[in-house]
């Protein structure tokens, strides 16, 4: 059987579980919309621009910085931890399911949620008259990079550092929220002091946010966008093999009954 068939089965199962539990889906819908509206209101007031312009500026970071961080990274960690807690991970290791099918299934499931969040955020922004003015193919490329990076990081964190639900929550609180702030999700990077801006160069969320802002701008600076995309591809090139290694180590450690 093909990798895709297996991956689709994994993705369907994850999505069915999420729909059945609902709580995560409600959070993943409410949180980015709240960030969009709050950031939009703050930017409109402080920058003395219209709410429409402010929402257009806030939407990219609300999506790739806030929404996808929790759904794709947090969601992947939660899925792995839940599989480990109810021991279904063992059953998957007994089955002839390929590792790459499982990771692809995780990516498809969380990618589907990401697309839903994108539609929701831009749908809410559109209610206020805001539109996406940039290149849709480039926007989709940034979205795909964000999904791949977050799921990859989620696999690394979920397999190596989070054995229980409390571990996952602690990880997100201890590292995730500072990374979001340093990534310019809640506060534009223009406000950062130089020292933090230097530090932010090592944070993939910063480059995702900056790339998303550049893509969404009416007249984007091609060089700026290219440099952020190059860095993101570099991050992905490191994250994917580390994620594969982490997954393989988990299989070796946990695939006994």
């Amino acid at each position: 059987m093909g990798v895709w068939t297996e991956a689709i089965a994994v993705a369907r199962r994850i999505l069915t579980e999420l729909v059945r539990r609902r709580r995560s889906l409600v959070f993943w819908a409410v949180f980015p919309v709240a960030i969009l509206l709050l950031n939009g209101a703050i930017v409109a007031e402080r920058a003395q621009i219209s709410l429409v312009d402010a929402l257009e500026a806030a939407a990219p970071t609300a999506l790739v910085g806030a929404a996808l961080f929790f759904s794709c990274l947090g969601g992947t960690v939660s899925t792995l931890v839940a599989e480990r807690e109810q021991q279904t991970l063992k059953r998957l290791f007994i089955a002839p399911l390929r590792g790459r099918s499982y990771v692809l299934g995780l990516t498809l499931a969380h990618g589907a949620i990401a697309v839903g969040q994108g539609l929701l955020i831009y749908g809410v922004a559109a209610l206020f008259g805001a539109t996406f003015r940039g290149s849709i193919p480039l926007g989709l490329l940034v979205l795909a990079l964000a999904i791949a990076i977050y799921v990859g990081l989620g696999v690394i964190l979920g397999t190596r550092f989070a054995r229980r639900t409390e571990d996952a929550n602690a990880l997100i609180a201890a590292f995730g929220v500072p990374l979001l702030i340093l990534g310019g999700t809640f506060l534009p990077s223009e406000f950062f002091p130089d020292s933090l801006l230097d530090l932010a160069q090592f944070n993939p969320i910063f480059h995702l946010n900056e790339a998303a802002i550049a893509v969404a701008a009416t007249e984007s600076d091609g060089d700026v966008l290219r440099s952020h995309l190059t860095v993101l591809l570099g991050f992905l090139a490191v994250i994917l093999p580390v994620a594969a290694l982490s997954y393989r180590q988990t299989v070796t450690l946990e695939r006994r009954l």
Partner: peptide
Amino acid sequence: LLYKSLSCVENLRFFAAI
């Protein structure tokens, strides 16, 4: 070792696929 929030059929459908 079952997915507790899924139904019997959903569990079987998943494992039949993989």
